[in-house]
Amino acid sequence: METILKDGVLPECTEECAICLDKIQGKKSLKCFHSFCSECIDSLFKFKPACPICNTYFGKYTGNQPEGTMTVDRSWQRLPGYEHCETLVIQYNFPAGIQGPEHPNPGVRYSTTSRTAFLPACEEGEKVLRLLRKAFDRRLIFTVGRSVTTGLNNVITWNDIHHKTNIQGGPQCFGYPDPDYLSRVQEELRLKGVTEDD
């Protein structure tokens, strides 16, 4: 298709809003340089303050994780691929409760849940631990919904930030060795707006 030039100048492009898929009205540009209708992006930011195109966060994103605790211990046990350092053992505990208005079925009960995860106590593992703590405090690591593993509804489930719940067995068993895990989980955290800089 040929572009017709008028006086040697390209015709003005009409920008389309990626949210409403119509011509941008009251243009609002974000720091990531993506532009939207101001009404569209303002409405979207009430639910998730992130660019819908590149997922760059603006402000803090808080999830709907139920009340619980995150504790960390150190173990002498070594993880495959990280034999040079100790192991960080993360314990998540959630008492039974009732879903709030931010959950899929307000007023419906969910049962008690506990999960154990493992990180190498190396410099990068310690960094991931700090990021996981920040994500936990922002209620982003767990949610209430349908378990992919059991198929049960109204249970506490992981919320797209993968953890190593086994010491060994490799990625297929959610364990080590998995040389790319620490960088992958940092990217998952970044997509939730959790970085060392924020």
Rank of each mutant, 00 (worst) to 15 (best):
Q25A: 09
C85E: 01
D7V: 12
K6N: 13
I24P: 04
Q25G: 05
A117S: 15
P120Y: 02
P52K: 04
T71G: 01
R74A: 07
I4Y: 06
S75F: 11
I41R: 00
K46E: 13
C13M: 11
G26C: 00
Q25T: 14
G125S: 09
S75T: 10
H34C: 01
Q25I: 11
I24E: 03
I19R: 02
A121C: 11
Y110S: 01
S29D: 12
T113L: 10
R130Y: 06
C122Q: 07
I4F: 03
P11N: 11
P49S: 09
N64C: 11
E16S: 07
G59I: 03
I4H: 04
D42P: 03
K31S: 14
C40H: 02
N64S: 14
S29K: 14
S35G: 13
V89P: 02
T62V: 15
A96K: 15
T71D: 05
Q99L: 01
R78C: 00
N93L: 10
I53D: 08
E15Q: 06
N64T: 15
T3M: 06
A96D: 15
C32L: 05
T14W: 00
K6M: 11
M70N: 02
T62A: 08
D73L: 09
E126I: 11
G59W: 02
C122H: 03
Y92M: 03
I4R: 08
G59V: 01
T3E: 08
G107N: 05
A117F: 04
F118W: 09
D42K: 11
C37D: 02
D22Q: 15
K127I: 08
W76C: 12
A96Y: 14
H103A: 06
K27P: 10
G107F: 03
L5Y: 09
N93V: 13
Y110H: 04
G100Q: 12
E126G: 05
T113V: 07
A96E: 15
F118V: 02
I24T: 05
H103N: 05
T71N: 11
C122T: 03
S111R: 09
P66Q: 04
E83A: 06
F58A: 00
P52Q: 02
P52Y: 00
N93I: 12
N93Y: 12
W76P: 12
K31D: 14
S35D: 08
C85T: 04
F36E: 03
Y110M: 05
S43E: 11
N55Q: 10
C32W: 04
P104R: 06
L21M: 14
C13W: 12
E126Q: 14
P120R: 00
E16K: 08
E39C: 03
P52H: 00
I24S: 00
T116W: 15
C40N: 02
L10G: 14
Y92I: 01
S35T: 13
D22M: 14
N93D: 13
E67D: 14
K23P: 07
L44W: 13
G125I: 05
K127L: 13
E124C: 06
L129I: 06
E123C: 10
C20T: 06
C122A: 06
I19H: 04
F45I: 00
L88C: 00
G68T: 04
E123V: 12
C32A: 03
P106S: 07
T113Q: 12
G100W: 06
C51A: 01
F94I: 08
T116P: 15
V89Y: 02
T112K: 15
C40D: 01
C51F: 05
E123M: 10
G97K: 09
H84T: 05
